[in-house]
């Protein structure tokens, strides 16, 4: 997705897709539903092992979600494309994939665990 023209107003709705972060311009002006700001960690598990996610909350909104630790038997390469999807789009040769993945489930559980701590 190409970046939309940046409006002069303070709200920049498509900030998640902006190529660079400009600290003078807070990307999310509106307040999200999470009570605490900061970085929170959570765990999720699958048959193949455990995944730890880290979620950053700013202004009550999720601004990033990442795999913090991957303790699965296989590498987390399979879900490398997932974390950005929490705040931005999934990009690959295809726009989207139909059919859930087990590692994605574990990542979801880890995200939920982390988000519960920001409530």
């Amino acid at each position: 997705m190409s970046a939309p023209p940046r409006p002069a107003a303070t709200s920049v709705p498509a900030a998640a897709n902006a190529p660079t972060y400009d600290p003078s311009e807070e990307p999310f002006e509106f307040r999200g539903s999470f009570k605490k700001d900061g970085t929170f960690l959570g765990w999720g598990s699958s048959r193949h092992g455990d995944i730890q996610a880290s979620v950053e909350i700013r202004n009550g909104r999720v601004v990033s979600a990442q795999i913090a630790q991957c303790l699965t038997r296989y590498s987390c390469d399979v879900i490398d494309k997932l974390p950005p999807e929490v705040v931005a789009r999934q990009s690959a040769d295809v726009d989207y994939v139909s059919g859930a993945t087990e590692s994605a489930d574990a990542f979801y559980d880890a995200i939920v665990d982390a988000l519960a701590k920001a409530k």
Partner: peptide
């Protein structure tokens, strides 16, 4: 604009092409 939330046992993503 893309937003995701953890809900209903999954991650729901809404992607509006601007």
């Amino acid at each position: 604009m893309i937003r995701s939330i953890a809900v209903m046992g999954t991650i729901a993503t809404v992607h509006a092409v601007t």
